[in-house]
Structures are given as structure tokens and as C-alpha cells.
Design a binder for these strands. Sequence first.
DNA 1: GGTTGTTTATTAGTGTACAAACGAATAACC
DNA 2: GGTTATTCGTTTGTACACTAATAAACAACC
Lengths: 136, 136
Amino acid sequence: MAYRLDEQIGYILRLANQRHGLIFNKHSELGLTPTQFAALVRIGEMGACSQNLLGRRTAMDVATIKGVVTRLKAKGFIQLNPDPGDKRRTVVSLSAKGQDVIDQLHAFGEKVTEETLAPLSAPERKVFLDMLKRLT
Amino acid sequence: MAYRLDEQIGYILRLANQRHGLIFNKHSELGLTPTQFAALVRIGEMGACSQNLLGRRTAMDVATIKGVVTRLKAKGFIQLNPDPGDKRRTVVSLSAKGQDVIDQLHAFGEKVTEETLAPLSAPERKVFLDMLKRLT
DNA sequence: GGTTGTTTATTAGTGTACAAACGAATAACC
DNA sequence: GGTTATTCGTTTGTACACTAATAAACAACC
């Protein structure tokens, strides 16, 4: 049987990711990228934490989370403070503006998820997500 | 029900993509990235074509395919020639070295696919790939 | 209490990914 | 045949994503 690019999981995953990105950007009103969105929502879930820990909890390496934090700070959604008990650490937390948009982010995220999964029925979505999680 | 980042399709897709990338790089011997691999395999499937068309058939925009072609050329896997019938076009085709590695690429691709899908049983893989394709 | 090892953050370099704008060449059309 | 629209390739700018190297701070340990 011939090898076909269109049947390879890596290639199809890339396409699915691209489609999700397009849907995300189409609806994005706050000017956030999917990565920035993930970091911001995670801070809302975890509360204040170090930049490094935030990176681990959002699957971003140190160089990536550094840039994401810089841009979220520039946009005013987070604030950065030195950790009083550990001079190595920078404590990342939501700003007042960040607090204010969390509910909006959740509603936005649900809309994006809904549209991305639109081609699948409700029972299919559950099966699909369970299998996809096993590939992480 | 609370919104949870870990349940969002976009976030999980990103994680699955990351895992695939790690598996790909671990086995990569020719120094190719997943994107370069896709472009090279596609040229092998299509034969010679313009740079723009190659981009469309591998889901890369003009700026991305430009860089990928430049690097594949630098690594000696492809050759670039002007199109005799259309002065706008650059014809991209496999070099002798590119021809020589196509079979190796297919075997490599199958190994990466196998390892990426290892957490799923054979029937699950079929169901999963069918659903994932619908999300592209 | 001083060595050893780990953690945290930064920087530099390479490689996707997309948007936007540009000039040159070609195609469509009247 | 001349205007209009489209296509092709390039460049600029922003944003992930990973590797590798570095320096500072902290923790463990005997």
C-alpha cells in the first residue's frame, strides 16, 4: 500500500490546528492569540504563580512563556511582581483588567470550541476528545 | 459547569501536535522538520510543480513555503528552475538526492505515525483519523 | 558552612505560520 | 489591443516553538 501524506496523523493534526486557529482569530475581539488565551485562562484557574510554573502548566517552554508573558503584560491583562521569598522568581497574576475579562474569555472559548467541533455530533465529540487526550 | 482549559479542543490539539513533533524529531535522521518532510513527500507525489502550487497542496501560505523551499534547496533535496512558459513561476522538483531518499522518507513517516498512534488500538485509529479529517 | 545540584529567568539562533503590501507577469474581457 | 483582474513570487512584521547556553538564586547534603 502506497504511503500517502494525506493519511498521516502528523499532517492532519497540523491541518486541524490551522483550522482551529482560523476560527479562533475570526472570533477574537480582545486581540489575543490561542497561546495567550491559554496562559491567561490558566492564570485565572491557578491564581498567581511564577512565570516558569505557568509555562509548565500551559505546555510552553521557558523561551515561549517569556514572550507570551511579555505580550500579556504589554496588553495590560497581567501584572508582574518579584517574589518576596525567592529572588529568582517573577510572580505573574491577573491585573484588574485581566480579572474583568475572565468570564468573557470563557464564553469566547466555548464558542470557538463549539465551532471547531461543529462537524462532529455530540457523542462523537466525547469519543474524539477522549482519544485525542490519549495522544498528548 | 466550569470552563476548563484542559477540556478545550484547541488546547488539546496543540498538545497532540507537540507530542507528534517530539516523536518526529527523535527519529529524524535526515535533519528534516515535519513541514519540510511534508513538502518533500508532496513533491514526490505530485512531481515537479510551481512553488505556489506546492504551498497550496501542503497547506502553507506563500511566505511559509518560500522559507521551506529555500531550506530544502540548501539541503540539496530539491532543485529550482525557471518555468519556460511562465516567467513568474519557479519550478520545484526533486534532486537526485531527493529521489534517493523518498523510500526512506516513507518508511520513516510510517514509523512516526505508528508511534504517535500507539495509544490507540487499530479500530480506534480508523475512527479517530476519520473524525480528525472532518475537523480540517 | 561550603560544595553540589537544581531551579528560575534571560538571551541567541533556527524554523514554522499568518497578514499585508508590492512589482512583475499572465489571463480575461470587451 | 488595451483595460482589468488574477496569479506568482518576494519582503516585512508579529507571534509561537524548540534548542542551547548563561547567570543568579536556592536547596540538599555531609
